[in-house]
Amino acid sequence: MTGYIVRRCIAAVIIALGVAAVVYLLLNFTGGSPAAAALGNHYNKITAALWNKQHGYDKPLVVQIVDYVWNAIHLNFGYSYKQGQSVAALLNEDAGRTAYLSGAALVLALLIAMPLGIAQAVKRNSIGDYVATGVAFTLYSMPAFFLGLILIQFLALDLHVFPAFVGDNVTTTWQAVTHPLEMALPIVTLAALTVASFSRYMRSSALDALAQDYIRLARAKGLRERAVLTRHLLRNASLPMITLVGLSIPGLLAGNIITESLFNYPGLGLLFYDALQNLDYPILLAYTLIGGILTVTGNLIADIAVAVADPRIRLD
């Protein structure tokens, strides 16, 4: 297995470097120059040339990319001209809150989706299965903010159970953790969309596993249905879920932008949203790169986790 992990790691590093190069190229050279964005009203040929020289934009492209990656590895993502702060500091400030929001949503989604998917597979074609499939299908087809708006309308504006947005009393990660009422709607919104795809996948994965002969043999041994499910089905049906969790990271990151801007929750998503409005390219570039790296890392961890959990890979 060591060989397998080493190979996966090398592949991940190569892909991560590729991500960095592509992101840099894409964001800096798909129209408009960074100088124009940074200088704003002061932009003219002379100031631009000076600015470019000052910030290394006059060097060959390859050198620029290598410089950028080199700096990024040292957590130096440049300087936000709009906010007058280093990008790394801005990111660092918000990272904890976003991690909390995403982590809580992911855990909640898994806690709901896995038992639900298995239950649906076991009771397939029952009324409950149809209802759950219908709900999942609807959520799956719904933009995150629309779900969030519905929740705000009913649970916040009509019933006053939760606040409609995250207030000023939540500014640190710790405050986010200690204010479950304020966080309920953002977490549920983010989790609901993930639940939709997870439970659909879990259902089909459990259905595949249920059709295998080892389930039949487990029943033929005289095991109770519950034991058949927990001892034989759960682990085998969950293996593909590990990969899916890895693959869900880009969706979670995108969901963060929507949820945080909807609920005004001060995380990386909101930072990105503000940067979009202000055309603050160093932040956009940095967070896109980080999003890519997180995705690569997530997939790598998922691959390794599958290898550990699946003896067919572990012992090869």
């Binding site: 991500v19 592509v22 880009p250 969706g251 990151l253 967070y287 896109t288 890519g292 995705t295």
Partner: peptide, 9 residues
């Protein structure tokens, strides 16, 4: 590589 960069971004 391209799939690793979130599409919405």
């Amino acid at each position: 590589i391209l799939l690793s960069i979130p599409l919405l971004f």
